[in-house]
Amino acid sequence: MEQDWIWGLIGGLMIGSAGALYLLMNGRIMGASGIIGGLVDGSERKAWPERVAFLAGLVLVPPLLVPLYDGFDAHLTDSLPLLIAAGLLVGIGTRLANGCTSGHGVCGIPRLSWRSIVATVFYILAGAIIMAVARHLLGWI
């Protein structure tokens, strides 16, 4: 538990290096919602091979590394209403805002993009407020 922040920092450096690689080699911003969103809504079909390749690496590598951990547990809820409502909110919200934690947070803020800074402030604030209400007031989560 005490080492969580060290692993967070190491993992963060890996995530940032992935974004740097994607930017400098492919000339693309590593935004998870943009990469998948542009594929499924048909708006960015032209660059589909590199998007699919990115997603293949993203989906296939974590399960290969999980055996190194003694028991990975995402602590994911099994409440269908919560999963469906949250999935819709995340899907619509990230596409309306043109980015999520990776695109706006990891890639946009170090570029000093004003839009990304504002987006990140709003999704963290909204998240903290919903957490306070849903967990401490309503006891949903």
Partner: peptide, 26 residues
């Protein structure tokens, strides 16, 4: 879109603790 979308995203993120990257990675 930027503001409203980010608020919606933050709400969904809080409800189950998943954003698009980790959701797809898992």
């Amino acid at each position: 879109g930027l503001i409203g979308g980010s608020v919606m995203f933050g709400a969904g993120w809080a409800l189950v603790g998943l954003c698009p990257g980790p959701a797809m990675a898992a």
